[in-house]
Every structure is written in structure tokens, then in C-alpha cells.
Design a protein around this nucleic acid. Structure first.
Lengths: 259, 259
DNA sequence: CGGGTCGTTGAGCCGGGTCAAGCTGGGTGG
DNA sequence: CCACCCAGCTTGACCCGGCTCAACGACCCG
């Protein structure tokens, strides 16, 4: 299962950026440096408390996390998902703005980058700095699409649209097959993401299953999207906002069945 | 009416940033340089077409604009409002990401900053560069709050919350009184922002009026929020995400009745 | 005076929420 | 090894916030 070449954790980030930019040898080494040390968090543990205004950045090596806010009446709105390869905390914690929280959904490992290091990188390494800017812009685009999803789509479209986005984001870092991936989300998490009730998420998932759009095994948590084109059509999904190539086409990757 | 000291257009930006950071004389001059030339757009005109991937930034000097996306079935979702003092286009148009559009709601004047200039500023002027980062983070916080609004609030809360946000954003650039401002939005624009129908926006506005939360004269388009504390309470509004002082308290400004 | 845009209001419907109950499977302690 | 618990998933019944359709009014502009 692990006949993959011995890898430092840096690969995932290099792979991700490579979809947009090629980093120099030296820049790749800088990333590797960061990945030497890491911190881990348990399921449901808070990463970055509000209090900790450390203004450092984090590279997410493995696991899923969410950024969320709570409203006065106790409700929770999930703002975004943090997936392997994502960077976070490098802009929001700098100021007194946005008091949102980050929580691990699964066991998570991250690498910390102190603020000084970020400044140094921006000054001296053009490509890396550009990669950071790209990551920011991409996050911005994802938030934008989330707003459209919440404002102008019904439950069925929201769910399908989100599942497609997650597939394509995971594919970029080789964490998904051609049409399936491990989806560690409870229906409650989906509900709090999509602005729906748990009950209605349940019913909408069933409808997606009945329509042969997806397969989802609640035990293994493996999700398979049966007809991406059809689902994209009915949900109004257009992956161009993720800034990746149309489709990595097939690859040996998929045949092996990536872990 | 114009007994205000002769001003270059730069004041508005300096005022805005001053809430977070103090710019040096030289840095203020750089801003003034940009404000010497400007472009204007008519109501409903598109600013920045998709096609124009110029990757330059724009300072919004006066007027209101929106960033929006359309969904396949013809619906429109407004992502954000661009108000005087806002900067836009300095991150999104750099890449192939986010195919959203920007449109003027009122006559608008903007100043263009070529991409090279931005790069130069980031390299040489610490405070200005920090101000840019702050503006980005603030925009991020505003988007985040918009997501919460759409996902976890009802019509009444959404509307009230938005009206409060606009008040406080305008106050930062002296475009609002202590509790009132010029609101150049049709009910259709409000609907497309809040994910509601026009009809329901109309009814919800009436409810806000009946509850003595607001006064809104459809002719003059002057909006007054009668009890900010009460409205903040019922809508779950907390202005801290805008990163400004709690309340500018009273000022001569208000007595005069700012235009 | 005619047409267009925007605001207002009523009637009826429906997508999605709420409440409530039951089901399932894994974990834990006696 | 069983009894229990608890988190998450399902399903039904009912309700309501917000949508649609439709008509009308108010104002502006040519």
C-alpha cells in the first residue's frame, strides 16, 4: 500500500502549487524545512484559539478541519473546509478582525510557519510569494462560490455542488480517486455548511442517491460521484474557480486506488 | 455645501487606513499621486470586464458598486458591495480564478493602479504594504460575515444586519451620519444580496419600519437606523469584524450633516 | 400622455424547518 | 459476554417562512 516513494510531507504542497507555478529547487527546500516539525490535533479539537493571536501561518499536512462561526442563538455556520495542502491563519489572525474558529474534524497534522519567516519569504522568493498570493486568491474564489451556493441555490444543488468542489480540491493533492473520496463529514457538518437542517440534508442525500448521482456508504464514508457531468449540470457547478486543469484525465493513480 | 477644505481625493483612503495604521508623509503622497487621474463609470455600467485581465488594482473614490455572479438559471448573487475607500481587483484578476463581475450601481469614479506600481509599493513601503494586507483581511472578514448571514439568519436578521454593516463601513469614510446614510439600492439589489425575493425584501423592510427599527424614504433614499443597539441585538450583529473603533462618538461632522 | 422602472400588496403554494420517535452500531463497564 | 449508552442516521407528520404569480400604484422621463 505504501509503495509510494519515501516522501517528506512537502510533496503535497509542491504538487498543489505546481498546478499554478513551478518552484525552484531552493524554494522547494524551504517548504521541506517547514515540514520537518509538525503539530497534531485530535478530532474535534480547536486549532488556533481566538486568544492565540500569534499571527503565524499553518500548512495543513493531513486531515480535515473547518473554519466556523457561531451565531447568538447557538447555531453554527461553517465558513470553509481546510483540506490537506491548504494554508491558513496567514492573514486573518494578523488583525483584530474575524473572530472565527478553526476545529479539526479528523486527526490533523499541521506545520507552523512563524510570521517572521513569512515576511522573509515574501521579500526574497518571488515564486513562493506568488504561490502565497495565489493561495489567497483561490481561497477568496472559494468563499465567493460558497456565497453563491448559499444565496441562490436550493438544497439539492447546494449539496451536489459542494460534493463536487470537495472532489476536485482533493484531487489536486492526490487525496481522491477519479470520482470517489473519503468524506469524513457527519450530516450535521453538512447542514451547518449549507445552511440547512440535519433532517433535510439526510433527505437530500437520499434523493441524490435515488437519482444515481452519488453512492455513499455511511460506514466506510466513501463517497462516489457517479456522473460528474450530470451532477455539474443540475447544480450549476463550474470548477474553473478552483484554478485547476479541467480533468487530470485518468492516471495510474486511480487504478491503484489512492489511500 | 463645499466649505470642506480643498481636498485631493486621497483623503478618503488616508482616513480609512488611519483607523488601523498611520502612513508616512511620503506614503500619503504616493496615494495622492494615484488620485490625480481617475476614470468614471455610469450607473449600471460594468467596471472591469472578465476579458480585461489587466491585473491592476482600483481605488474607489466615490459611488457604489457591486461584485456579483450569475447562476445558470438567470439568477444573480451579489457577493459584496464596493464603497468609497475600498480597493478592488488587486488579487482576483491576477489569476484565471473567480469569474465574477463588477458593476456600478451609481455613477462611480475610480483610480487605477497598475500592477507594477503595486509590486513596487509592496517592496518599498512597509506601512502601505501593511495597509493593503489589512484591506484584504478586512474584505475576507466581510465575506465571512456574509456567509454567516446567508447560512444562519432569517430575512429580518439578514436585512437588519446588512444595513448595520453598511452604516459602519460608510462611517469609516465619513459618508454616513451617526445613524443615517444614503442608500442607493433598489429592493431587487437587496434581494440579490440577501438571497431573498424582491417581494419578501419589501415586506421585511416594512416590518423593520413598523418595529421602529429604521426609517427609509424611498424618494430621498435616506436610511436612518433608529435604535442601533436594539437592531444589533435582534440581528446578532457585532461590528468587530469591520475592525473599527466601537463608535466614533459624536463629532462636528454629524451636526453639519455630511453630504 | 404613454411606457418603464420600482415599490406595494394580496392569495396561495411549497421547500425546508421543527418535533418526535425509532433505528443502528460501536464503545464501555460490570 | 451482555447491557447499556450515545452519536449519528432515518423517517413521518405537521407547520411556517419565504416564494410565485398577479395586479396595481407612484414616479420619472421622453
Amino acid at each position: 500500500m505504501t509503495d509510494i516513494p519515501v516522501s517528506t510531507g512537502a510533496d503535497i504542497f509542491i504538487t498543489k502549487f505546481s498546478s499554478y507555478i513551478d518552484l525552484s529547487e531552493q524554494e522547494q527546500q524551504i517548504i521541506e524545512e517547514f515540514t520537518r516539525s509538525s503539530m497534531t490535533f485530535d478530532e474535534n479539537q480547536d486549532i488556533i484559539l481566538e486568544s492565540e493571536k500569534s499571527s503565524s501561518a499553518y500548512l495543513l499536512q493531513s486531515g480535515w478541519a473547518i473554519r466556523y462561526k457561531v451565531v447568538p442563538d447557538g447555531g453554527r455556520q461553517i465558513i470553509s473546509f481546510l483540506l490537506p495542502g491548504d494554508i491558513f491563519g496567514f492573514q486573518e489572525s494578523l488583525f483584530e478582525l474575524s473572530d472565527d474558529s478553526v476545529q479539526a474534524l479528523t486527526p490533523v497534522t499541521v506545520h507552523r510557519i512563524p510570521a517572521e519567516k513569512i515576511a522573509e519569504i515574501c521579500d526574497n522568493y518571488t515564486n513562493l510569494s506568488l504561490a502565497l498570493t495565489w493561495a489567497r486568491a483561490r481561497e477568496h474564489a472559494i468563499l465567493t462560490e460558497h456565497i453563491v451556493r448559499l444565496g441562490r441555490r436550493n438544497a439539492y444543488e447546494r449539496l451536489g455542488h459542494l460534493l463536487l468542489e470537495l472532489l476536485h480540491r482533493l484531487q489536486l493533492v492526490d487525496k481522491a480517486g477519479q470520482s470517489d473520496y473519503f468524506l469524513p463529514l457527519t450530516q450535521e457538518v453538512l447542514a451547518d455548511t449549507l445552511g440547512l437542517s440535519i433532517v433535510h440534508v439526510n433527505r437530500t442525500l437520499r434523493k441524490l442517491r435515488n437519482d444515481h448521482m452519488i453512492e455513499l456508504d455511511p460506514k466506510t464514508r466513501r463517497l462516489r460521484i457517479l456522473d460528474q457531468e450530470a451532477l455539474s449540470d443540475v447544480t450549476g457547478y463550474d470548477q474553473s474557480y478552483l484554478g485547476q486543469k479541467e480533468q487530470p484525465a485518468s492516471s495510474i493513480q486511480d487504478a491503484i486506488g489512492p489511500k
